[in-house]
Design a protein around this nucleic acid. Sequence first.
DNA 1: GGTGGTTTCGTGT
DNA 2: ACACGAAACCACC
Length: 190
Amino acid sequence: MRSNCIPAVGIVEMTPADYADGYAGLSLRYEFAETRFGRILIAASAKGAARLDFIKDDSAALENLRNFFPNAKMLRGGGVHIENALAAFEGASAGPVKLHLKGSAFRLAAWKALLDIPAGKTESYGSIARRLGCPKACRAVGTAIGANPVAYFVPCHRAVPATGALGKYRWGSDIKRAMLDWEKATEQLF
DNA sequence: GGTGGTTTCGTGT
DNA sequence: ACACGAAACCACC
């Protein structure tokens, strides 16, 4: 079994039925929560988590969410994917957090590749590009990974520059470092 | 060990 | 058609 303490089992791709007409066919549950890495806004459909952001201001974050899914139905609270996600942040054993995502084929492949990196481990953008069969596309891989809509469960914090530096992170490099440190510490238990 | 110029490629405009 | 990155590589210092 892969030593990945994040119980994300896979990516379900959104179809036109989900995202046509500004996601009019999508129903989302959303919730705010405090996690060990900071305050989040998470949104999930019945099929999986669709968005997870580290946030500063609740109302601004909710507005961003509505801008991203302009015509989706949104209800606060509830849903197994949100419950499981919050449990996972506590390090508790929880059910799988599936991911329900829309993206280009290249982006989806890049996000899937991240799920192969074990907890506490890192991989360079160039190495990921090679795994995707595009050995020269390291920079495009960086752009694709940076567009990840679900922080932590698509473990984009495990992608780092080949130089050994920490690299950039969409929600702040402090959070990236904290995630990797926590994963390394937790992995001692296994 | 650091800096700068060049290569390279998927996206949004 | 063009410009922009969560990069890598190589030369040079």
